[in-house]
Amino acid sequence: MGDEAELFDPQFLSRLRTLFFKLRKRRSLKKKGIQPTVSAGHTREFKDHRHYVPGDDFRQIDWRLFARHERMFIRIFEEIQEFHVHLLIDRSMSMAQPHSTKRLAALRLAIALAYLSLINQHRVSVLSMCEDTRREILPLKGQGHIHNLISHLASMKFAGVTDLENSFRQFRPGRDRRGIVFVISDLFGSSPALSESVIRESVSWPAETHVIHVLDPNEMQPDLEGEMELVDVETGEARRFWLTKREMHRYKIGFDSYVEDVERACMLRQVNYVKWSTGLPFEDLFLTLLSKGSALAGS
């Protein structure tokens, strides 16, 4: 279905090597990885000293410094984390038709995020959602799996009707797989209000959630006028309209209001929201995503 070449951009991916993920707040992760954090951990990598305050683990007191300065310091070691990066990709028909740029953008974004995770020794889970949530590939770790991932994503079928409610409800990352969830979707469900309500489901996920709203410019402001029959690519439902400039203006107002509602719902639930327009350059958007999103950090 897809072409791996259009998904794989080695130059862009190589620029991602200097980047890494950073969680917004410390979480107790069971598995340790290579990702240093701001928190003190229990690794052997010494990081710094600081004054002892009551309540600190007295086992971390550096008695040699006590002997020299007669003041108590504790040793701080770097904490190296390993966490899961869950990529939840919308594979409904609306992501591939009629604007195939959405599919391409979603897959490239997934590969970029997956690559960034793999090179930072995070585990990557790729799931797809449509009527339900389906695991596309077993969790991967290590950058050697990137080609395997690309080929798998390139062959992923985009079809079916989006059931956001069911898909979000079915996605339950285990406690041992805490980390970051990237939802890459156009969020087109059975109704616009549903998109806003399903954001509520993400609160129960044991991870930081990022919603990347993939939209095509023609969806945000369609260039339609005259008599036509519009067919929903997912449901096959057809409706006939006589569209005028006035109708298109009203459409844009309604769509912008929908996007704003979704963004507001995300902010209320501390879910990062990014509107991803396929009409804009991919790299610029991705870097903006990294710099804007509080969960991502540069080198």
Binding site: P98, F188, E219, L230, D232, V233, T235
Partner: peptide
């Protein structure tokens, strides 16, 4: 006949 991603917003028109 024009395919669209969703009819939700057209229905509101």
């Amino acid at each position: 006949t024009i395919p669209v991603s969703t009819l939700n917003f057209f229905k509101m028109l």
